[in-house]
C-alpha cells in the first residue's frame, strides 16, 4: 500500500547550510498493518510524514501510495490518505458537526454521504454529546477525537498519524490506541509515528527506528529483539541509537 524507496529530503538553511533531514529511507506498509516510526525529536519523523501526506516534496526517492506516485499524482494521493498531526489543528469557531461537514465537502463528498458517515463516526467515537459545541469549548481529548473523525471522514485506505497521543491523558490516549487498532482491523494501512515505546510495542506490526535522518533498524518487534541484546523495546531503541552515534 505504501512503498518508500530511497526517500531523501534536503533543506537549505541560510545560516546552517545544507541539512539532510531524511536520508535514503526505505520501507513499506501493507493493508491492515500499523507501521511505527520511532525516533527522538529531530530524527526526521515529521518530515517523512509531511512528504507522505504530499505537503512537501521529496528531494530524491520514489514514494507510492496505493499504486500512485505522490509527486506526480499528489491530488489523487490526498484522496487516499487521512492525515493527523499536531499541525492539523481545528477551527475554534466551528462545532464538530460543522468541521466534519466542511472537511467532507472539501474532500468531494456529497452531503448525504457525509451525514451518514458522520453519524457512524460520532457514534463510534462517542462524540454525540458535544457534536454541536464549539471547538474552543472542548477538552483536549474531545478535540483529538474530532481530529480523528476529521481525518477519516472520507474513509481513506491510508492513515498517517503523527504522534496522535501526544498531550493526552492516559485514558484518552488508550481510547485513541483502541481506535487505531480498530482501523487496522478494518484493513487500513497506518503509518504511526511516536516516541512512546509502550505504544509502539502494543500497536505496531512493524517498527522502523530513525535517527538523525537515517533508518537504523526495521522489522517486527520480534525481529528487533532477535538482533538485540535486550528484550525491551526501550532498551533496544537506546542500544540502536548509541550504535548509530558511535558509527558516526
Amino acid at each position: 500500500m505504501i512503498q518508500v524507496e530511497g526517500l531523501t529530503k534536503i533543506f537549505h538553511d541560510k545560516k546552517r547550510g545544507k541539512i539532510v533531514a531524511v536520508n535514503n529511507l526505505q520501507f513499506n506498509c501493507q493493508k491492515g498493518q500499523v507501521f511505527g516510526l520511532l525516533g527522538p525529536n529531530g530524527a526526521g519523523k515529521t518530515t517523512t510524514l509531511r512528504i507522505l501526506a504530499t505537503m512537501i516534496l521529496p528531494t530524491k526517492g520514489e514514494i507510492m501510495v496505493n499504486g500512485l506516485d505522490i509527486v506526480k499524482h499528489a491530488a489523487k494521493v490526498r484522496r487516499q490518505i487521512g492525515f493527523l498531526s499536531s499541525e492539523t489543528g481545528l477551527y475554534d469557531r466551528f462545532t464538530p458537526r460543522e468541521t466534519i461537514l466542511f472537511f467532507g465537502r472539501i474532500n468531494g463528498m456529497a452531503d448525504k454521504i457525509i451525514e451518514k458517515r458522520m453519524a457512524e463516526i460520532f457514534q463510534n467515537l462517542d462524540m454525540k454529546d458535544f457534536q454541536d459545541v464549539r471547538v474552543n469549548k472542548l477538552s483536549t481529548g474531545m478535540k483529538q477525537k474530532l481530529s480523528i473523525a476529521r481525518s477519516i471522514i472520507h474513509n481513506p485506505p491510508v492513515l498517517i498519524l503523527d504522534e496522535p497521543t501526544v498531550g493526552l491523558d492516559i485514558i484518552t490516549a488508550k481510547t485513541v490506541i483502541e481506535y487505531v487498532k480498530s482501523f487496522r482491523d478494518q484493513g487500513k494501512c497506518i503509518i504511526y509515528s511516536t516516541h512512546i515505546m509502550r505504544e509502539a510495542e502494543k500497536l505496531c506490526d512493524k517498527i522502523a527506528i530513525i535517527h538523525q535522518g537515517n533508518l537504523i533498524a526495521q522489522g517486527t518487534l520480534e525481529e528487533l529483539k532477535k538482533n538485540s541484546l535486550f528484550d525491551d523495546l526501550e532498551e533496544i531503541f537506546f542500544e540502536l541509537i548509541n550504535q548509530g552515534e558511535n558509527q558516526e
Binding site: A53, T54, I81, E87, G89, D92, G108
Partner: peptide, 14 residues
C-alpha cells in the same frame, strides 16, 4: 499560528 493550515493543504482543494 493556530496550526490549522496543514489541514487544508492535505485536502483535495488546490
Amino acid at each position: 499560528e493556530r496550526g490549522t493550515i496543514a489541514t487544508l493543504l492535505v485536502s483535495q482543494i488546490s
